[in-house]
């Protein structure tokens, strides 16, 4: 298991991962660029703005991760939290 990274499966080699990132960026650029050619029919004006889906998706996720992180501060407990209680019975 503790082999050199280049000996592992093709998919996890650093070179492949760099390639995958590059492909992701290209695909992202293409979906935004497609907006030039294809008219997005918005329902409420702003969702037809250029690149709205991209910005909205990214920001929504950012916000949700931050909210989860913040709530996690209050809600997260050790995984044996309830189990400890049960043993007291």
């Amino acid at each position: 298991m503790s082999q050199h990274p280049d000996d592992d499966t093709w998919l996890v080699r650093p070179a492949t991962i760099r390639l995958l990132w590059r492909i992701l960026w290209i695909v992202l650029a293409l979906t935004v660029a497609a907006h030039f050619v294809i008219k997005v029919k918005g329902y409420f004006v702003i969702d037809a703005w250029y690149g709205f889906g991209a910005a909205f998706g990214f920001l929504a996720c950012l916000l949700m991760v931050l909210i989860a992180k913040g709530l996690g501060f209050f809600l997260k407990r050790d995984e044996n939290y309830y189990r400890g209680d049960q043993e007291d019975d």
């Binding site: 991209a54 990214f58 992180k69």
Partner: peptide
């Protein structure tokens, strides 16, 4: 076409957000 573009943007940029926010 418009709906597909909208959802692809929405979803793929969520994917980008996931990998950028992975440390969090």
């Amino acid at each position: 076409a418009g709906k597909v573009v909208f959802y692809l943007q929405l979803l793929l940029f969520s994917g980008l957000a996931f990998f950028l926010l992975l440390p969090m």
